[in-house]
């Protein structure tokens, strides 16, 4: 029997007085990969931000339990330190802070232990090679002047280095060409093990060809309208969301 990692119960979320999520329920176990699909504006990104308690999103009801602890109202950094990670759809640019320094600092904050420079650099180098990231990027300012694809790969690099228990990938595959999607998938495979879990938010099914997905949830108008296997994703690719819209 697999162990429960994340449990979202009856979650209601508003942004600027508009109701976005209208009662989301989602349970994920260790070792699983889930996918949330849905048309634009259905609340996919809101779900990710709500799990991470982004102050721009107000929770109007429900709870989020992670690894046996209620994290509904924890601060974002406290949630991160408990092992939650999110790959951003639009990663922020931080001028003057190199990828290496940033990750070293973040790793230190997340583990609460000093980072051993030599090991850290070796690990960073290894993952950058795996993800086909130009080694020069280690010393460049975080995300500044990176192309869309480079930013996304950098998010996956951060995930590998910080090694969370649970990763949310928000539209990580969107806007990427086939090679980049393959690289990102390779990163997810490297990360994935029996102790962690991945939640992929997407509106295309390409990435699903490279990964073994356990569940697919369809989100329409702030509610999960159906849940199925990877087959469901293929079906939606053919038929669209029409039949799920009220």
């Amino acid at each position: 029997m697999s162990e429960k990692l994340l449990e979202v119960k009856d979650l209601y979320v508003n942004t600027e007085d508009k109701e976005i999520l209208k009662g989301i329920n989602l349970t994920m176990n260790k070792g699983e990969i889930h996918v949330i699909m849905g048309p634009n504006g259905s609340g996919k990104t809101t779900t990710a931000n709500a799990i991470f308690n982004n102050p721009g999103y107000q929770k109007a009801g429900g709870s989020i339990n992670f690894n046996g602890e209620d994290i509904t109202n924890l601060k974002t950094d406290e949630i991160a330190r408990r092992g939650v990670f999110m790959s951003f759809q639009l990663p922020e640019e931080i001028p003057g802070v190199s990828v290496t320094n940033f990750l070293k600092f973040a790793k230190n904050k997340i583990t609460g232990k000093p980072v051993k420079i030599f090991e850290f650099k070796a690990e960073l180098k290894k993952y950058m090679e795996e993800l086909h990231i130009n080694p020069e990027y280690a010393e460049r300012s975080l995300n500044v002047g990176f192309s869309g694809g480079e930013k996304k790969k950098n998010e996956i690099l951060q995930m590998l280095v910080l090694d969370p228990k649970f990763a949310i990938l928000d539209e990580t595959d969107s806007g990427l060409d086939v090679d980049a999607i393959r690289t990102v998938s390779r990163g997810i495979e490297l990360f994935k093990n029996e102790e962690n879990a991945v939640l992929i938010i997407t509106h295309n099914t390409k990435i699903l060809e490279y990964l073994k997905v356990d569940y697919v949830h369809v989100l329409v108008d702030g509610k999960i309208v159906t849940t199925g296997s990877a087959e469901l994703a293929r079906q939606i690719e053919k038929e669209g969301y029409e039949k799920y819209k009220g």
Binding site: K75, T76, D77, A80, I94, P95
Partner: peptide
């Protein structure tokens, strides 16, 4: 920007750390 702070906090930095990092980066040139 609040978005930038949120991004850094999602990587485990406290709000204070996040702001300090952004300010140091701002002064880096």
């Amino acid at each position: 920007s609040d978005k930038t702070i949120f991004y850094l906090m999602s990587r485990g930095l406290s709000e204070e750390d996040a702001k300090a990092m952004i300010v140091r980066g701002f002064a880096y040139p």
